[in-house]
């Protein structure tokens, strides 16, 4: 509940900003630890909307979906849906070629396993991510970013950690 309140405060705070940044990000996910032993690497796609508190600091909301297949040509599939609050800080926000930054995210992850015609009970767990970005211009107002993320689903008994390689395209919009 405490963490939901933090999310709520972040959302309310964004009301005071006037510029939004919309991002579409695709990613390849590699599970870390035994939970991915029978699953293939995953593919993810996410949409994020951030408000700019300053050119360097932004925060907002996003949602990401990820899907993993069977590592052994079987019928298993594993999906994640992650609504989250995000924040990012960039060092050179108007840099044409090199604008390094860090991103963090916190939210919930809905995990679902299907295998051999069966479906396990789905699980909702808290989730965090942290990563670095190399942001660059694609020609105003479009920008793109390459990144690496470490993320973890804080599930009971054992976390679902993963490493992620991302590529995203973004556009700033004056509201």
């Amino acid at each position: 509940m405490f963490k939901a309140m933090i999310l709520m405060l972040a959302v309310v705070a964004t009301v005071w900003a006037g510029t939004a940044d919309f991002i579409f990000e695709g990613a390849g996910i590699t599970p870390i630890g035994g939970w991915g032993e029978n699953l293939s690497n995953g593919l993810a796609g996410g949409l994020y909307a951030n408000w700019l508190f300053s050119p360097k600091l932004r925060a907002g909301l996003g949602i990401e979906g990820a899907v993993f297949g069977d590592a052994n040509q079987g019928s298993a599939s594993f999906t994640q849906l992650k609504p989250m609050g995000t924040a990012s800080f960039f060092l050179r926000p108007h840099g044409v070629i090199f604008n390094p930054g860090v991103v963090v995210g916190f939210g919930y992850c809905r995990s679902r396993l299907a295998s051999g015609g069966g479906i396990d009970p789905e699980s909702w767990d808290m989730f965090w991510r942290a990563g670095i970005r190399w942001n660059f211009s694609l020609g105003s107002p479009w920008r793109a970013g390459l990144g690496l993320d470490l993320e973890s689903v804080i599930a009971s008994e054992k976390p679902g950690d993963a490493f992620k390689l991302t590529f995203g395209v973004s556009r700033e919009v004056q509201l």
Partner: peptide, 8 residues
């Protein structure tokens, strides 16, 4: 939210 040790 319904949490269960799916990753475990």
């Amino acid at each position: 939210c319904d949490s269960n040790p799916l990753y475990f």
